[in-house]
Design a protein around this nucleic acid. Structure first.
Lengths: 149, 149
DNA sequence: AAAGATTGAAGGTTCAATCTTA
DNA sequence: TAAGATTGAACCTTCAATCTTT
């Protein structure tokens, strides 16, 4: 890979890309915080617990699915446990099982529509259907460059 | 804007988008940290000081150009000042003037090739030229939906 | 009062070191 | 020993409150 200075065109692309990511994440995060009382990270954890595990998951599995380091997840779960959103207990297979509390479920249900609306407003509704397709294929290629498209 | 549940297709797009942003930023940040000793934020500040202002800029101007809140920039500049990368002094026009130190310049020069190589490796070289065009137009539309394309 | 900047506290993230248990 | 998880310190981000100068 070359390390020559980025051309103006390359620089523009990089800045536009970074700005888009920063802004969309910040806007969705702040809608979620404001209208559902959850951070983006909290919503991610809760929705995975519900969607992937019907309410509970092994901590390791959760960390992998979020592409998070274990210590990041551990700190995050500690805070969420203090807020009453989830519980942890030793898992039969070893490791730790994480499960939603009743409060966690309620907060998550209330957050879904807020999240959906925000993602539409700040990303989905701004794209043509061609752009949607292009964005999917770009994301796949960038995240996982070996695979065929 | 609708707040109905996101469809599987919408969810996939959202997750792919978020993952791409997270991964690229994390990879470039960690290359920069590892090979140049700078965080992404520090590189952003230093390179703007050099590129936009030939070495110095008003703090407010810098904040605007990074789309940062003033308090974020203030904390960041305090840390960078402690590390000897820059100086602050009252500006003639009011406000504060920020300028690169000699050390700041040196560290930045050493970081440029690391940054360029990393951005190519993790983003630019993974895109076809059609995808580059598409990504620019997507970024512009998402960041600034009112404007024509 | 308004503009520009700083501060402190609380929350979030990373890294390396440590603990625990199979 | 290795896998899984936790901890503490350092750093970063956000928010609201405050300070300073015009």
């Amino acid at each position: 890979v070359s390390n020559k200075p980025l051309s103006p065109r390359e620089l523009r692309l990089w800045h536009a890309f970074k700005l888009m990511g920063d802004e969309v994440l910040a806007r969705v995060g702040s809608d979620l915080e404001k209208d559902a009382g959850l951070s983006g990270a909290e919503f991610g954890v809760l929705s995975r617990l519900r969607g992937m595990g019907r309410g509970e998951l092994r901590q390791q599995h959760l960390a992998d699915s979020m592409h998070w380091h274990k210590s990041r997840l551990s700190h995050q779960l500690t805070r969420m446990q203090e807020r009453g959103y989830l519980e942890r207990r030793p898992a039969a297979e070893g490791g730790v099982m994480v499960s939603l509390t009743e409060l966690g479920r309620e907060v998550l249900e209330a957050a879904y529509p807020v999240h959906a609306k925000s993602v539409r407003a700040h990303l989905l509704d701004r794209l043509s259907s061609k752009q949607e397709d292009a964005l999917v294929s770009i994301s796949n290629r960038v995240t996982n460059p070996e695979e065929e498209d």
